[in-house]
Computed example of a mutant assay.
Amino acid sequence: MSGDMGRWRATYTPGSWLLLCGPAAAVVLEPADATWSDLVETLWDEVVSAESIADLAARLAWYRIDSMPSFAAFFWGPDGMRSLVRGDVRVVDADSNEVVATGAGVQTWVETGLGDLRQVRVELPAERPEGVFPLPLVVGAVGVSAVFLDATDEAALDSPQQVGPDSSADETTADETAADETPAGATPPVPEEPRPVDEPEPTSRTEHENAETRLMSPSELPVPPLAPGTDEGGADGGVPTVAAVFCAWGHPNPPGADRCRVCTALIAVQTPREVPAPVLAVLRASSGATAEVVGSVLVGRAPARDRARHPDPVLLTVTSPSHDISRTHLEVFASGWDVGVTDLHSTNGTDLVGPDGSIRTMDPGETTGVVLGTSLELADGVSVLIDFPQ
């Protein structure tokens, strides 16, 4: 009994573009940075699971792939091969060299039914590295510079390898063969009793090899543990919590985020979960001192805890040779998924320098929200950067 491996096969030359190939679907995506590495298996699983070109397009849209400047998708269905093309990708008839689909100048994508066409070249704006040669692929994910799709009957692959318990149903056992070949009137041989075989003791390796594995969705990732001696639910005396969604690396993010605030990886659609409040930012003083923003951080040349407007403050001491910086100059605090700053009526005030270089002086006692990348200019040439968490 053979198993159906794929309706087509791809031949590719290695390169920087990404080819995700399934038994009846294939997707070619433009080069991305290393933060995409965690998403490849998830996208490949979506490609393999797609049931039609429309289903494939919808699955890609969930991950914002449809917003990429250039990509191509192909699906083999009852009506032949169909394609979605956008940007600098061309689909060429391998026999006539005629361009049958292109996404040049298209804002969304072009869907093209390739009808009876069975062999196409997918031409990409990518350089072919020196020394590479064409390689075959049926199902998997690889980096490519060009792709040839062959959907002819000769290209369809069946595996002679039998997998799973059902494969034995089509086999004839040795005893059945012997019984069939017993001459008429003769007494069939009595099968010998099977000799007992000592089963080897399971090892950690065999247990690992026999374990059931599956790809975990971001919503199934474990919730970070609470600190010892605390209970979930900040209002009841435990640590504060927030609703969060997760990237594939397990970094928490605000609900509705499409890219991770820590590693910039794409975030799959998922139901938010309540988790202990994460580190929202890292304060980096020009003197070298640092502090994580989870709750409250008091900044000054000798900050006093009783000046905090939020519980359990962390103290960040900065140098001020001229004493131009107040003892407790300001407070940086977390509020849900936002970061806020309060000037604690400092003597020489606080300037906010935005990531775009804009400068604004805070009023004494003012509280305002800030974005990551903002710098707090105090006095004595001292600044504190509100940096991204690591």
Rank of each mutant, 00 (worst) to 15 (best):
S375E: 15
V341Y: 00
D338L: 13
G87D: 02
E209Y: 08
T367H: 03
G229N: 04
D116W: 05
D338S: 15
D387F: 04
L157A: 11
C263I: 08
P200A: 01
L221H: 02
W8S: 01
A211R: 15
A211H: 08
F74K: 00
L330V: 07
A169N: 11
E111M: 11
A58H: 15
L60M: 14
P202S: 07
T206L: 06
C263Q: 05
P134E: 11
S296M: 05
P202C: 13
A184N: 08
V100I: 10
D356K: 04
V269P: 05
V99R: 05
E51D: 14
M362R: 03
L20W: 02
A61K: 13
S375L: 10
G80K: 02
D198L: 13
D158R: 11
S346F: 03
A186R: 14
W76E: 06
S335F: 12
Q161D: 12
N210Y: 04
T230Q: 04
T374W: 04
D158G: 12
A141M: 08
P355F: 07
S168Q: 14
D4K: 09
V299P: 01
A227K: 00
V269L: 11
S49P: 03
A10F: 01
W44T: 01
A58M: 13
L60E: 02
P311I: 07
A285S: 15
A58I: 06
P136F: 02
V100T: 05
N97E: 08
N253Q: 09
I359Y: 09
S287G: 15
R261K: 06
S145C: 15
V353L: 12
F333Y: 09
M1G: 15
S67P: 01
R284H: 12
A101E: 03
C260G: 05
G115P: 05
V99G: 03
T368S: 12
L330E: 00
P278T: 02
V40G: 05
G113D: 12
G369N: 07
S375R: 15
E292N: 14
T35F: 09
D236G: 14
Q161I: 13
P165I: 13
P364G: 11
Q390K: 15
V239Y: 00
